[in-house]
Simulated scan of single mutants.
Amino acid sequence: MADTTAAAERMALILAEGGLQKATARVMAAFLFADSESVTATELTEELGVSSGSVSGAIKMLSTVGLIERVPAPGSRREHYRLREGAWATLMSAQNGTVQAMFEAADQGIAAAGKGSPAARRLAEMRDFYGFMFRELPALVDRWRALRTAGPGSDA
């Protein structure tokens, strides 16, 4: 069995620098590097040396955004969780709501600041960027899913 502790901690650091809370980042890294198909909250608490409340909050957040899911574990009285198949595409699909909200907020900001103002100019760039992302993300996610379905080495 490989010792992936350093790699997992590095991944957690990168995730935390990207905006995740530290405990959530460490839980996510633990899911990515798990040696088993599923893990329990208790296993995560013991492995990471963090409070059960931190793990519970991280599991709730990661479940809410579609990265992990609860799975059946016959014979176990504990809840088991795993990284969801297709998690990254699911996350980017869910991000469309955020992208749309940013677009709308920028558009409302332009109206509030008044066209032609310096703020409106900056907000227009923001609106245009998020409008572009909102239009393009679904096609990118679809292409990714097609590549995954086609299998390794495919140019789908």
Rank of each mutant, 00 (worst) to 15 (best):
A150I: 08
M61E: 11
G66F: 05
E9R: 15
A146F: 08
P74N: 09
M92A: 04
I68N: 04
D3N: 14
G109M: 11
S51E: 14
R82V: 03
A30P: 05
G18I: 07
S38H: 03
T24Y: 00
T4V: 06
A124Q: 08
Y130G: 00
P72C: 13
P118H: 07
D107S: 15
F132C: 13
L147Q: 15
E125N: 09
R122G: 13
R77A: 14
A106F: 00
P74K: 10
Q108A: 14
G153L: 07
A29Y: 05
R143S: 13
L15D: 00
V71Q: 10
R148C: 07
S56L: 11
E9Y: 14
F103E: 02
A119D: 14
F31M: 05
A34K: 06
Q21Y: 11
F134E: 08
I110T: 01
G97V: 02
A111R: 12
A94P: 02
A16E: 00
G109K: 10
T98G: 13
D107F: 12
A113W: 02
Q100G: 04
R145Q: 13
T64H: 08
T42F: 13
D155Y: 08
G75F: 01
M61W: 08
A12Q: 01
F134D: 12
S117T: 03
G57F: 01
V141N: 03
V99H: 04
R82I: 05
T98E: 11
R10K: 06
A111N: 09
G66Y: 02
D155N: 10
A139C: 09
G151N: 00
L91Q: 12
Y81C: 01
L91N: 13
R10V: 05
T4G: 02
G97D: 15
E69N: 08
W88G: 10
V99P: 00
A34H: 06
A120T: 04
A105E: 10
M1G: 14
F103D: 03
E104K: 13
I59G: 00
Y130M: 01
R77G: 15
M92G: 00
M61Y: 13
V141Y: 04
F134W: 15
A7C: 09
A6E: 11
G49D: 05
D3F: 12
T149E: 07
A2R: 15
E43Y: 05
A73K: 06
A41H: 07
A58N: 00
A113S: 03
V141L: 05
G151H: 06
S76H: 09
A105L: 05
K115A: 09
E37G: 15
A146C: 10
R84V: 02
S36T: 11
V39K: 09
T149Y: 05
S63E: 02
A58S: 10
R135K: 09
V141G: 03
N96L: 14
